[in-house]
Amino acid sequence: MKNSDSGKNDHDRTDKGAGQAAAVRHNAAESRYELVLDGSLAVAAYLTRTDGSRVLTHTYVPEALRGRGVAERLARAALADARAEGRKVVPECSYMARFIQRHAAEFGDLV
Rank of each mutant, 00 (worst) to 15 (best):
M1D: 13
N3M: 04
D5G: 08
S6R: 07
K8C: 11
N9C: 09
N9D: 15
N9H: 08
A18G: 00
G19K: 05
G19Q: 07
A22P: 00
A23R: 03
A23E: 10
H26E: 08
N27G: 03
L37M: 13
G39N: 09
S40K: 13
S40G: 02
S40W: 12
L41M: 11
V43G: 12
A44L: 13
A44K: 02
A45E: 15
Y46W: 10
R49Q: 14
R49M: 10
S53L: 03
L56Q: 08
T59Y: 04
E63F: 00
L65G: 10
R68E: 09
V70K: 03
A71N: 10
A71M: 03
A71H: 05
E72V: 00
A75G: 04
R76Y: 01
R76F: 00
L79T: 05
D81W: 00
A82M: 03
A82C: 09
A82T: 05
A84M: 04
G86C: 05
R87Y: 02
K88W: 01
C93K: 06
Y95V: 02
M96F: 07
A97R: 13
R98M: 05
R98V: 01
H103G: 11
E106W: 04
E106Y: 06
F107Y: 15
F107L: 00
G108S: 11
D109L: 01
V111F: 00
